[in-house]
Design a protein around this nucleic acid. Structure first.
Lengths: 194, 194
DNA sequence: TTGCGCCGAGAACGATCGTTCTCCTACCGT
DNA sequence: ACGGTAGGAGAACGATCGTTCTCGGCGCAA
């Protein structure tokens, strides 16, 4: 049972860390605050995460897994041709969450910069690479390969704008721009005027 | 002469602050480091900027003025129809600067969040509002009103992507998407098929 | 020359951070 | 019943931060 307890404690710490780090930034939240909020003794906390740096990396890692899996799940419920739109619908829902505060990875990167500990940097870069890959798949499914980078710009742009001016509009506008990149479905793909 | 000295010292402090704050983040740079790098005694530093918070606000304020003025100058050298493209050409040059590290205002916002001191928040929001207005003017000059928010998404998205994967490509891709929003100049504006 | 006031250099202060250590309690096998 | 050990609560430590204070020297008016 000890292992189970350890697992449960670990997720409780990560839940607390995610809430606090995401809401207030990594540097503004001390280990003591996580200890108080999670009610996990400092000693156990340091046994599970030997340093704050490792806790930050674990927080970002788990958030990446959940975030990407959630987006992927939503995308995969849509028909191949509607998947680009599904991405931005999912974004709109995310932006509407009451505690939305932009992209956790960009916030952390902006906060720590290139001086961030290597494991943290790796998670950040890995997250963006995974997102880019997913967007590439989505574009390919819609019959438009090579659109990953453009879609990434739209996703990041909408997220950043929404972080400063909350609301779903950025997602809707990015969605329109994204759909405009696709081959039009309502009319013949080439030579509309014969 | 005293006033001139004070002015010169002030700009030297701001030059140092801008370099360090932008490169390493606001929280990672202490007042002592600014004092050492600028060679301005701590006492004088605090006489000009009564607190770190006011120095941060002044740094962002001056950066906003310069950044926006530079973009506006570039835009105004272009013909009315080419101004949207000029925005993204300017962005590409910015991304190529060796010390480019994304948007200083977004980085600071991500770092401090809503807990940022009010004057700092005001500068950040003011900067984004000014940028949005400028993009609105640019769009209007190209005969397409109401595009400010979409262009803002493209500008922010390109900037964020460039911050993580340096290079001018994000600007070029955003530029293409932006031009696609405009009424095509190569063909009649309405009813191409009669 | 002699006091006087301003300014620079750097120590000092109090708060806070990440991390470790000390003590004390509670449980376990025998 | 009892000694040993693991674990929890919180103090303690050293570093660093923003900010202030002290001290010594320099320029200037009388």
């Amino acid at each position: 049972m000890a292992a189970t307890d350890e697992e449960e404690t670990r997720t409780r710490v990560l839940d607390t860390a995610e809430e606090l780090f995401y809401a207030h930034g990594v540097q503004a939240v001390g280990m003591d605050r996580i200890r108080t909020a999670s009610e996990v003794p400092l000693k156990r906390l340091y046994r599970i995460f030997p340093s704050k740096e490792s806790l930050v990396a674990a927080y970002l890692e788990r958030r990446d897994e959940r975030w990407t899996a959630s987006l992927r799940a939503r995308v995969e419920t849509a028909a191949a041709g509607d998947r680009v739109a599904a991405v931005f619908d999912w974004l709109a829902d995310w932006f509407a969450e009451p505690d939305f505060r932009g992209c956790a990875f960009l916030n952390t990167y902006g906060e720590l910069g290139e001086a961030a500990p290597e494991p943290v940097l790796a998670v950040i870069r890995g997250h963006k690479a995974r997102l880019r890959d997913l967007l590439g798949e989505v574009a390919a499914a819609a019959g438009a390969a090579g659109l990953a980078d453009r879609l990434l710009i739209l996703v990041e742009g909408a997220t950043v704008v929404a972080a400063l001016t909350p609301g779903r509009e950025p997602a809707d506008q990015a969605r329109e721009m994204a759909l405009a990149l696709l081959p039009h479905s309502g009319e013949p793909a080439v030579e509309p005027c014969v």
